[in-house]
Design a protein around this nucleic acid. Structure first.
Length: 568
RNA sequence: GCCCGAAUAGCUCAGCUGGUUAGAGCACUAGACUGUUAAUCUGGGGGUCCUUGGUUCGAGUCCAAGUUCGGGCGCCA
């Protein structure tokens, strides 16, 4: 294969960003990259020599090189010393399709996508989903490795030396390494299959009769009890891929817009916003607590010399970075010790909190709209196979509602207007609406689903029902707060413009009964170069639920922590 | 934390107004058949009917308490 051909192909595969530059290959660059590959243990001897072609950058500096076989390219970035396997043939609008690999092994995704030329010998590694035998002298073994929704069909002929002894005893959950020729499938239901020349069994299932994951529908309740095995199901594999896709899209969205990811502390000393019960962090001996003069617990003897807790929000901390670096965000674990036993609450969850400087509530709402649409688009475009499964088996409107969400501009309604709309709706709500009350889920869903029919941003809530740090509006009775409401769920994002005026902030803190001594550093931000700024919070698992159509948040995180539950 | 519901095979479930030996599908196992698609067909193994106590001649079934799970509400992301 010629370098020029490869270059074109690699550009087509959207790899330029990874290799910095792609140009005509130099022999020196190729050797250097080969050396890097070998020393890093990335490529076997055979594989390196199987490839042809190469590349460096146009300046003559050998910053990258690549080789190709079939329709697969291995791109080496010499400076970084890693290898990327990429596919040439992919639609221009498809998601990036780059995968790390450390052996001559093909992922199921690559094999099924047409990225590997038929006739190529491939090795796939994974776990058996089902086995079907044919007396024609072969067995069909469906193997999944998590790289995509579908398993690949491995056709095992009876002539395999371990056919009777092992292959015919394969069942759900067995781990195998299958080698053979990738071929267009002779059967229906899949484009490609592997005509196996060898199947190595890495691990059988001890007791197939009691192996919990069967090729059938399981209840979500049951699968929660086997959280270590549920990623082997179609559903939880798909959720894991979509969750990852969303997390990656969160970082990509902010990175592309110049936001910095700020890692706020997980251990904190104060209740950031009165958000509720906190988990204590302590190394004190619970059976022998040190006491102070008045008989209270002497936290001065504790690890940090004072009371400490797990964070309930990184917002206050990240505001400090916002007021220096302009556009920042947090994305990390958050902890609430509330005794909330519902399908929408976790004791440990992940939260995303952007914070923007020189910004008002309007800018905040625009950011929230762009952000959500970006994330939903990423899920639909990058994981169409998983999304189709959610629509088929979990929630019929799962895909459609995301598409509608992306297509429609958000409606904006003032809280006071929202209250009037609800009062005039003619609906009887379980909780009557009156100016001054917080909106219940039933109210939110009426607004977004019935009244507007698309996402709604409700703005300017009564100050009494919102947190102390929210900016008091000129009317003196509302704050610059917003909630983004989505059809089918209600509130998905909550945010506000922050109170940047020190005197007003102090007044709010006093009103909320907060001790200013605990917030001196936060007050400093208003003393030294204060500016209007705003931000919002998004619970990551609630986002995952909405995208996947899940009803229970405990299915949106691998190992859910909730009152009474910290298994696995 | 409050209210409501549920618990029968490894899994998903049926089991009537209390009545002899508790059933089905899937899974497992043996066989038949087939380039099969959560294959199909035939046979087989597999149960402390959540626990404890009570009512009754007799309890999977009725009652009480407990345990666990689920749903609703509150708190919220």
């Amino acid at each position: 294969m010629h370098a020029a051909h490869l270059e074109h192909a690699v550009v087509g595969a959207d790899l330029v960003g990874e290799v910095d530059a792609v140009g005509v290959a130099g022999a020196a660059g190729r050797m250097r990259a080969e050396t890097h590959a070998r020393s890093a243990g990335l490529l076997g001897e055979e594989l390196v020599h199987a490839f042809a072609g190469g590349g460096g950058d146009a300046d003559g500096h050998d910053r990258g090189a690549f080789w190709g076989v079939g329709r697969t390219a291995i791109v080496l970035h010499a400076a970084r010393g890693f290898a990327i396997i990429a596919t040439f043939a992919r639609p221009a609008n498809a998601a990036p399709n780059r995968e790390f690999s450390f052996m001559a092994v093909t992922s199921v995704k690559q094999a099924l996508s047409g990225a590997v030329a038929p006739g190529t010998e491939v090795t796939v590694r994974g776990w058996v989903r089902t086995r079907r035998d044919s007396k024609a002298g072969l067995s069909f073994v469906n193997v999944s490795d998590g790289s995509c929704f579908d398993p690949i069909q491995v056709v095992a002929p009876a002539t395999l030396p371990n056919y009777a002894s092992e292959v015919q005893h394969l069942g759900a959950g067995c781990a195998v390494v299958a080698t053979g020729t990738l071929a267009p499938s002779q059967g229906k239901g899949q484009a490609f299959e592997i005509q196996a020349t060898a199947i190595e069994v890495c691990g059988f299932v001890d007791d197939p009769e009691t192996y919990p994951i069967q090729p059938k529908a399981h209840s979500l309740e049951f699968l929660r009890e086997v959280a270590h095995l549920r990623p082997r199901t179609n559903l939880f594999g798909a959720v894991a891929r979509v969750r990852h896709t969303l997390a990656a899209a969160v970082h990509r969205f902010f990175h592309e817009r110049g936001f910095l990811w700020i890692n706020t502390p997980i251990i904190t000393t104060s209740d950031a916003e009165g958000a509720g019960q906190m988990f204590r962090v302590s190394t004190l001996d619970l059976a022998n607590l040190p006491r102070d003069a008045s008989g209270g617990i002497d936290f001065g003897k504790d690890f940090f010399g004072k009371e400490t807790f797990l964070t309930v929000s990184g917002q206050l901390n990240v505001e400090a970075y916002c007021l220096s670096l302009s556009n920042v965000y947090t994305f990390g674990p958050t902890f609430r010790a509330e005794n909330s036993n519902t399908p929408r609450h976790l004791a440990e969850f992940w939260m995303i909190e952007p914070e923007i400087a020189f910004a008002d509530l309007d800018a905040d709402a625009r950011l929230a709209e762009d952000f959500l649409k970006y994330l939903f688009r990423a899920a639909l475009e990058e994981r169409p196979d998983d999304m189709a499964f959610f629509a088929e088996r979990v929630l019929p409107e799962a895909v459609e509602r995301l598409e509608k969400f992306i297509a429609a501009p958000f409606e904006r309604i003032d809280y006071a207007d929202a209250v009037e709309i609800l009062k005039k709706s003619g609906r009887t709500f379980e909780f009557p609406v009156e100016w001054g009350v917080d909106l219940q889920t039933e109210h939110e869903r009426y607004l977004t689903e019935q009244h507007v029919g698309r996402p709604v941003v409700v703005m300017n809530y009564p100050e009494r029902i919102k947190a102390f740090y929210m900016r008091l509006n000129d009317d003196g009775r509302t704050v610059a707060a917003m909630d983004v409401l989505a059809p089918g769920i209600g509130e998905i994002i909550g945010g506000s413009q922050r109170e940047e005026r020190l005197d007003m902030l102090d007044r709010r803190m006093q009103q909320f009964g907060l001790d200013p001594a605990h917030y001196q550093w936060y007050r400093d931000l208003r003393r030294y170069g204060t500016v209007p700024h705003a931000g919002f919070g998004l619970g990551f698992e609630r986002l995952v639920c909405y995208v996947c159509g899940l009803a229970n948040i405990r299915d949106a995180i691998p190992y859910p922590r909730a009152p009474g539950h910290a298994e696995f």
